[in-house]
Nucleic acid binder design. Structure first.
Length: 554
RNA sequence: GGGCUUGUGGCCUAGUCAGGAUAGGGCGUUAGCCUCCUAAGCUAAUGGUCGGGGGUUCAAAUCCCCCCAAGCCCGCCA
């Protein structure tokens, strides 16, 4: 609805102004859309912008009547105001199941996100990755792309060698009911402490790394054991957060299947390759000072070598590759892209997000200074349960728990996704536990209210003739949802969806406050019920895309 | 030292890439609104040198240059 109207306006302006770029901007409080093309034409036509705006407006005004678009001029601005018919039709269009789903697209996409090392549980920094990645994935599905979401499991790094050493030599016992990932973190922290500066232990770690690379069966078994234990815990946490991966890719597979070796052979034949005691690339031509080392002097490979093989594999299976990575990976990400470019391979597009820290400083699994995702979910759920119990004491405990879970996960996801990825943040318990406005529960609540109205309404005629300002403003915003989905995908910025959801809830609440639905009569009642249904459906689809449960009652 | 990112009322944040009309929200504080579809709500008040300085432009939070501050990176770790 919006897009078709947008394009019609664009075409009309192009024809009249004779410019390709007709300077369409958001009209703010003045209009639904506005054009500032008159400024641009002032020099060419040697006339005042306001006069030009007037000319263009009178020329195109009639052509947009069938779309219910009114053209007005304020000074040099050409304003386009959508009318009642537009709004009414937009509301009707939003009744369809799966509203916002765009037409199927051919470009297949692979999104890799989270991929945290299996040496401890996910913490509040990691889940920023998970939530950005998962929301992006949901948006890509909504936008019609064939998609696979992957978790790249680093199962043969130094950290895992340290964990396996600690597991074998330190008597760290699992606690009663302790999840594997939390247990592994304690082993990892203890192992790091035990190793200290001892060169003998460091040598033992190196030995394990050489053995895992050679595929020594006993070492493989040991590594697999600790990695699986940790990964199972991570998977459970992701599930709690409504985060879904289609596949887990084990890093060591690229060593076992020979693809890493093939990749290193190809790199060895590049003119940028330097072979002395190590295998490395001189990327100064791409603007990187330091050498990009791929194989150590002891013959073992570094992470980057396996990562290159992984990306080449992804590139041969998908059209677009998107990696969600922390800002600390910016340099190596750029080096990876440059190297894939030298090899003539499909390079990923990397969505970076800045760090999450604690008020007392940065988080570290090694030091054990982090707030785990599980701990966060537990706390927020408990707080949510108190809230639900206070508001809905009549519900039985299971029902209240179910609502609390959805509220808690929603609150966490929304709190994280609403902030632009390139802003570093400080984790704040007070903020995390607040369920008012600019939070998921606020949006979930708007949805639940809409559901409640519809449940009480019973059958009604499908009519839609919107009239009041509140009705029209809400319907117009509903009309923007498909465009939002397209934008989030194009710009890879999921936080825009969070802003949209909040605005939609704001408009619904205003409508709810001022326009009685069930108490109105005749076509007004039917129209308002249709609008409530459209709003409910759009809120539902928006929440779904954000990975937040659209509760029917709360 | 070099590179990347960020800086918007007391606090958090949208808008910056694709310049346009009075810089949107929220938290907090203050004052109101439940015999009326769920008050996780609504209304109003309060609060801004858009880090600082220059420049480009009819027009700058937005583009360019310089400076300041914070975070991150610069390993034969991942």
């Amino acid at each position: 609805m919006f897009l078709a109207t947008y394009h019609a306006i664009e075409e009309a302006l192009r024809a009249s102004a004779g410019e390709e770029d007709v300077q369409l901007i958001d009209g703010g409080e003045h209009a639904d859309l506005a054009s500032t093309v008159a400024f641009r034409l002032a020099k060419v036509r040697k006339k005042a912008p306001a006069a030009i705006a007037q000319e263009i407006a009178s020329e195109i005004a009639g052509t947009l009547d069938d779309r219910d678009v009114q053209v007005e001029v304020i000074g040099p601005y050409i304003n386009f105001i959508f009318g009642r018919r537009y709004a009414s039709r937009a509301a009707e269009a939003a009744l369809a199941e799966g509203y916002g789903q765009l037409a199927p697209r051919r470009t297949s996409v692979c999104i890799e996100h989270t991929s945290a090392n299996p040496n401890g549980p996910l913490h509040v920094g990691h889940i920023r990755n998970s939530i950005i990645g998962d929301t992006l994935a949901r948006a890509f599905r909504k936008a019609g792309h064939p998609l696979e979401v992957q978790y790249y499991l680093n199962d043969m790094g130094r950290q895992i060698a340290i964990v396996s050493w600690g597991f074998d030599t330190l008597a760290v016992e699992p606690r009663e009911g302790e999840k594997g990932d939390h247990y592994i973190a304690r082993v990892y922290v203890a192992a790091n402490r035990a190793i200290g500066d001892d060169p003998a232990t460091a040598a033992e770690i190196d030995r394990r790394m050489a053995l895992i690379e050679q595929g020594d069966p006993d070492t493989v078994r040991k590594f697999r054991h600790v990695v699986s234990m940790c990964a199972d815990g991570i998977k459970a946490t992701l599930q709690r957060l409504n985060v879904h991966h289609d596949r887990y890719i084990w890093e060591s597979d690229f060593v076992r299947n020979g693809q890493m070796e093939t990749t290193l052979d190809r790199i060895a034949s590049l003119p940028e390759c330097i072979r002395d005691d190590v295998l490395s690339l001189d990327l100064t031509g791409c603007g990187f000072e330091k050498r990009y080392v791929l194989r150590r002097s002891d013959g073992t490979s570094v992470y980057a070598a396996r990562d290159l093989a992984y990306h080449i594999w992804k590139g041969s299976n998908f059209d677009d590759i998107i990696d969600v990575l922390g800002a600390d990976h910016k340099l190596i990400g750029a080096q990876l892209i440059a190297t894939l470019g030298l090899l003539g391979e499909n390079a990923p597009e990397i969505v970076h997000f800045e760090f999450v820290s604690l008020p007392e400083g940065s988080m570290s699994t090694r030091r054990g200074t982090f707030v785990s995702a599980d701990e966060l979910i537990d706390e927020v759920t408990e707080r949510a349960l108190e809230e639900v119990t206070a508001r809905r004491p009549e519900l039985d405990l299971d029902e209240r728990r179910a609502i609390a879970r959805s509220v808690a996960v929603g609150a966490i996801r929304y709190d994280i996704v609403r902030v632009s990825p390139d802003k570093s943040t400080v984790f704040d318990w007070k903020e995390a536990l607040n369920f008012e406005r600019q939070s998921a529960p606020y949006i979930q609540y708007a949805h639940a209210r809409a559901c409640s109205i519809l449940a009480r309404a019973g059958e009604f005629e499908a009519a839609c003739d919107l009239a009041t300002e509140n009705e029209i403003a809400l319907a117009k915003h509903i009309a923007l949802f498909p465009r939002m989905v397209a934008k989030v995908v194009e710009e890879r910025r999921p936080h825009m969806l969070a802003t949209y959801a909040r605005e939609l809830a704001d408009l619904f609440n205003q409508f709810y406050r001022y326009e009685p639905v069930l108490k109105s009569e005749g076509v007004v009642r039917d129209s308002r019920l249709t609008l409530v249904k459209a709003a409910q459906n759009t809120l539902h689809e928006t929440l779904e895309t954000l990975g937040i449960d659209a509760l029917r009652s709360m």
